[in-house]
Design a protein around this nucleic acid. Structure first.
Length: 216
DNA sequence: TTCATGATAAGG
DNA sequence: CTTATCATGAAC
């Protein structure tokens, strides 16, 4: 018997942060008249009392006004201000009360190129429009007003379809000082919109080469 | 490869 | 009040 899960169920029942990341990767996000295909994501877990403790996650030190969406219904948009100037977007996952988020790191523009171009003047090539989480936020026109929107429900102008990617690359997460080497960054191989890997200068040097390490 | 940028949360 | 941060583009 074939069971088709709704997107909400898939995100709620993720058994691991990577399950949620795989579900989102390859899907589409629509905000207003702009639709993009998500080609790079990072999984983030939650606090130590939950199933996926993650010191790199905004929710690691418990619920706060900023991160509360991560603790809420799966399939909602968690928008945060990064370094005071960029807006980055996550998709919440896990049951209500359990924190988790999939950071949207890069996407290809499918619809709305004109509006995106006006929001991202000066880019060298179209693939750079939503390349990197801050750039993705700019291209989609995201602000804190979008925080908490239901991506799988009735909120106007906001829609997420899951990609449930089965073929992808993985690697260490970008720009974080702790738990940087968990292979929780996933991307679609070959997409020109995938961002470049930048290791945090605060992260300890990896003890083994990435390609040599064993992953489970 | 390093730096300025500059909001917000967390810790002293 | 001080420090760190799920980043970016430009300068070096």
């Amino acid at each position: 018997m074939i069971v088709t899960l709704t997107g909400r169920q898939t995100l709620r029942d993720a058994g691991h942060p990577l399950d949620a990341a795989r579900a989102v990767l390859g899907g589409t996000l629509t905000v207003g008249t702009v639709r993009v295909r998500v080609v790079e994501v990072e999984a983030y877990g939650g606090d130590p009392s939950g199933p996926w403790p993650d010191p790199a996650s905004h929710s690691y030190r418990g619920r706060s006004p900023r991160n509360s969406v991560m603790f809420g219904e799966p399939g909602h948009l968690y928008v945060y201000r990064s370094y005071g100037m960029h807006f980055c977007a996550n998709v919440s996952y896990g049951p209500v009360g359990v924190a988790g988020g999939v950071l949207l790191r890069a996407a290809e523009v499918v619809e709305g190129d004109e509006l995106v171009a006006s929001r991202r003047p000066g880019i060298r090539r179209p693939a750079d429009a939503a390349r990197g989480p801050g750039n993705l936020g700019s291209a989609m026109g995201l602000t804190l007003e979008h925080n908490g929107f239901d991506l799988l429900g009735v909120d106007p102008g906001m829609c997420l379809t899951l990609g449930n990617a089965t073929e992808y690359r993985d690697g260490p997460r970008v720009g974080i000082a702790v738990a940087a080497d968990r292979p929780w960054r996933l991307w679609l191989d070959g997409s020109p919109a995938v961002s470049a890997y930048r290791r945090s200068p605060r992260a300890p040097a990896p003890t083994t080469r990435w390609d040599d390490r064993v992953r489970d």
